[in-house]
């Protein structure tokens, strides 16, 4: 579930042979017309000239990409230097998404393992409990987190009343708050694929390792982790990719210092910047980054299937 894929395995059933093209046509019309085509137009837009207050002039230019990568001074005629502002925003986004992914893995792996080793209906109840928060509105979850970690929020109040701290810990508008928000947003994405691969793990392998005097840690490192690696990679990607382009967590939990790609893009369309070609260019760069990650993943998967 949740971002996973259902593989089409029994391709042999052909009750409706010959109708395949017609049955898939609506999918093509909807996704092709309202997603594939728009992404194509967005690519064209990223090469157009900006018009002030949104919109574009149909003049072909590299200006948007130039603005992203190069600094040509105030009047645009200095020798080109590398512009670090936007690269830094990307780097920060990658960093924040990476930290969130690691935290999700630390909490998610033991959870997935624990659930996968339950039996019968117990297992599906645990799994269901993990899934529910994912379906709760992301906006509401982010607002809840914002409320919880405010300077005068319940967490600080509680810690102070317990005497753990004397001054409220300032968490909101920090990098930590954004990482926490991303972690909280996508934690179920980590648990589900790892759960699926642990469920398929053959415990006879653990027994064999134990019979050969492997310690539990050695078994975990040398037998279990390599076997469930595809699930771990899938989980990491399902957390990392949406975190990279996240908007709500950095916008509501972060401040100016935690500006991420999502906010940069939003500002070009809804905010004050109003530079559509630049927004389109940033979106294209983000999309390329995501496609690189996904291609790497697909390669790994096909390698794992062959090996």
């Amino acid at each position: 579930m949740a971002g996973g894929m259902v593989k089409s395995e029994n391709t042999n059933t052909s009750t409706y042979a010959g109708l395949g093209g017609w049955l898939i046509l609506p999918t093509w019309l909807v996704i092709g017309f309202f997603l594939l085509l728009p992404v194509g137009i967005m690519l064209i837009y990223s090469f157009l000239t900006k018009e002030f207050r949104g919109g574009v002039i149909w003049d072909f230019t590299f200006a948007a990409y130039d603005q992203f990568f190069f600094d040509r001074g105030l009047f645009g005629d200095d020798p080109a230097k590398i512009e670090w502002t936007y690269i830094k925003i990307f780097w920060r986004s990658i960093w924040q998404a990476g930290i969130a992914t690691i935290f999700c893995l630390i909490i998610g792996f033991p959870t997935a393992w624990f659930i996968a080793t339950r039996t019968g209906s117990n297992r599906s109840i645990w799994l269901f409990l993990i899934t529910i928060p994912y379906w709760v509105n992301l906006l509401i979850r982010t607002i809840s987190m914002k409320f919880l970690i405010r300077d005068t929020g319940p967490l600080n109040e509680w810690l102070m009343s317990m005497g753990v701290i004397s001054e409220p810990i300032h968490m909101i508008n920090t990098n930590f708050a954004v990482q926490l928000g991303l972690f909280y947003s996508y934690l179920p994405f980590m648990v589900l694929p790892i759960y699926a691969s642990v469920e398929r793990y053959n415990f006879a392998l653990s027994e064999a390792a134990a019979d050969l005097y492997a310690s539990r840690l050695t078994t975990l490192r040398q037998i279990i982790l390599p076997t469930v690696k595809p699930g771990i990679i899938a989980g990491c990607i399902l957390v990392f990719v949406p975190s990279l382009g996240a908007f709500l967590a950095p916008d509501l939990l972060g401040g100016a210092k935690t500006f991420m790609i999502g906010s940069l893009i939003e500002e070009q369309f809804k905010g004050n910047a109003g530079n559509w070609p630049f927004g389109a260019a940033v979106s294209m760069i983000l999309l390329s980054l995501v496609l690189i990650v996904l291609t790497y993943y697909a390669r790994q998967q096909s390698k794992a299937e062959q090996g």
Partner: peptide, 13 residues
Amino acid sequence: VPEIVTAVATLIF
């Protein structure tokens, strides 16, 4: 496709 990219593409479209 990241949600924000879909959003941008759809708006532009």
